[in-house]
Design a protein around this nucleic acid. Structure first.
Lengths: 350, 350
DNA sequence: CGCCCTAGGTTATGCGCTTAGATTCTGCGG
DNA sequence: CCGCAGAATCTAAGCGCATAACCTAGGGCG
């Protein structure tokens, strides 16, 4: 592979100094048009591509932002494309994080920012964070993808926005969606329209967002005077746990009228498990989710859920960072992103 | 924002030279265990994050690879999340390129490579390519996303793999799927099972992959002694053209029995247009696509298509590059990736 | 005619890290 | 107690670019 041409090569060929080459590219107003042309021709002939590394080093910033996602699915099952696998492949992609990432990508592109993708399997895996953090000017992280200390460490040195995190993390920005209200709306629908009284709840309380969902659920039931069920464990990306919870539910009876899941991923798995057990959804048990991922729309009937504005979340994050990068401000929380109740068929509506 | 700690800071705090700090991180075997510990403690206290820029500059490589995609959808309609928009949002994501990208991401991650995302709207837009190329050790590009000269320029300086390109580009690797056979299988199904004789074809011939599809189509019809229709223009990402072609078809009659589209995106748009015109699909006209994107599965009935192993394509590309990066070899073409005919309901099957 | 200003360039330095090669330690045999 | 071979560490030289600070040649003006 040929050595990459550098400013020196271009300068020599164009018969100018390297400073002039540099200016020709970055400060055209400081260079005579004719000289610029000479330089450009030389650069072109040499196939010159400026080294972003050198540039970043000299300028002190890279022009790239990083996205750090929690990896629910690092290595999908090998049969992903096999006949059976194909039918289910939409359960692996696109998920919540993927749709948010798309928003990030779109916004980055329209702003001319490069995007660096990183991620890990388990929180608190340091090396990878560093890998990403060292390359970028700013960082977007999903709540739970990075430990709080790591986030704070990063936030001390560059703008960081946490998606759905608590505002607690020192120095980090946050993009928040009102999960609580969304879940409250959904629950209200189940109570008022369907008159359900025996609920089950599948989910977790590991991140602020999940806790907010649970709160919306609890408060609505309490107001309605309906008994609040406990949290049965379910984690997106850990289907085994979800299935086990459903199995326990079936075993221990009596069956609830409706199973409220705190993610679509869990809901999809739960519906599978219920149907495998010979039950009809929503005939015997209604099921609801949260997020609005595509997998829910591929179900028959369509999953009742709360839709998050995923792409908008990603875009908002980039906007926050871009603002922080030029007009260094205080950490901001965004607003006005709402989660919308979306009635499908799995709640019993037709 | 605090100045980032550097090797100098760490060295000073640990009471060693910067070389030792560097070695402690990258060549532990050359440093006394105790010293390593001292260094690590100091680094930790300072929140030291090595600058990938400086590292890349010094080492001559960055450890990142770039993905350069053709952007079908840079700015999706503003109503994307509105009620109407939501129903159709899966038509914008995930598309072919998105699913390939996912494969790239997965493979990069499992190999510890950083991934840099770039892209552009129109081919031949130089600055953006450079932006990406300057940051990475190797590049993946979709056929048609970069002009051949640019590709060659890049390929002269770093490993490049073109997805679905012709092997012609000097020095570039290629990942190829047998599009021809896939389309031939689909066409054979239409001819043998459904006995269709009046075909229409919607698509383009802009890239080798599209041409291969057309060839598979033509040759199968010819063998069967069925008249080969012309190519009516349709471009993924340009719904207007596709709709216009369908309108022309309706206007000029007689209606074909089946409309073969060379992408799922075009097929989805065509089905919309036909139904808006009061026609039933597949009742009045059958329609088929190519790719196997999720949007096709959300249709009623499900779109008949040819499924590409999209994630596998992405993974193969990364593998090729990773190989090229350590054992510099000759440009390779991958193999063994097949496109599979997938009968849905839009061809007339039930 | 001399002075100052400006446009257009150039020189020189440093960004934070890697890495040959030089230097200092350390332990051990003689 | 000395000399010496590793082992451990340090010194110093870049990597390719941006940019502050500095030159130089004209041109306008009093």
């Amino acid at each position: 592979m040929a050595r990459r041409a550098t400013v020196y090569d271009v300068a020599q060929r164009a018969g100018v100094s390297i400073a002039t080459v540099s200016f020709a590219f970055t400060r055209p107003e400081k260079v005579k048009p004719e000289t610029i042309r000479t330089v450009m021709v030389a650069a072109d002939e040499l196939g010159y591509v400026p080294s972003a590394n050198a540039r970043g080093l000299a300028r002190g910033r890279t022009g790239a932002i990083g996205l750090y996602a929690y990896d629910y699915v690092l290595d999908p099952p090998a049969d992903e494309h096999a006949a059976e696998g194909y039918e289910r492949s939409a359960r692996l992609f696109p998920l919540y994080a993927d749709e948010v990432q798309r928003g990030v990508q779109l916004e980055c592109r329209s702003r001319g920012l490069a995007l660096m993708i990183g991620g890990n399997r388990t929180p608190a895996h340091l090396p990878h964070v560093i890998e990403v953090a060292g390359r970028v000017d700013a960082l977007i992280a999903f709540a739970g993808a990075l430990s709080v200390p790591h986030l704070e460490q990063a936030a001390a040195r560059m703008p960081v926005v946490e998606l759905g995190g608590e505002v607690r993390v020192a120095g980090a920005h946050t993009v928040l969606v009102d999960n609580r209200q969304g879940m409250a709306d959904l629950t209200a629908h189940l109570v008022r329209v369907h008159r359900y009284e025996r609920f089950a709840y599948l989910g977790e309380l590991g991140t602020p967002e999940f806790r907010a969902r649970r709160e919306g659920f609890e408060s609505t039931l309490e107001e309605a005077g309906v008994p609040v069920p406990p949290v049965l464990p379910a984690h997106p990306g850990d289907d085994a746990t979800t299935s086990a919870s459903v199995a326990a539910l079936l075993r221990e009876g009596p069956l609830p009228q409706v199973l409220v899941c705190d993610t679509d991923q869990a809901a999809v798995v739960a519906i599978d498990a219920l149907r495998r057990a010979g039950l009809s959804v929503p005939g015997d048990v209604a099921v609801t989710g949260f997020d609005g991922i595509i997998a829910g729309r591929l179900l028959q009937p369509i999953l009742t859920t709360v839709r998050q504005p995923m792409a908008a979340i990603g875009r908002a994050a980039v906007r926050l960072l871009a603002d922080a990068l030029d007009g260094a401000e205080q950490p901001t929380t965004n607003e006005d992103l709402v989660a919308t109740f979306s009635a499908g068929g799995t709640c019993g509506c037709d």
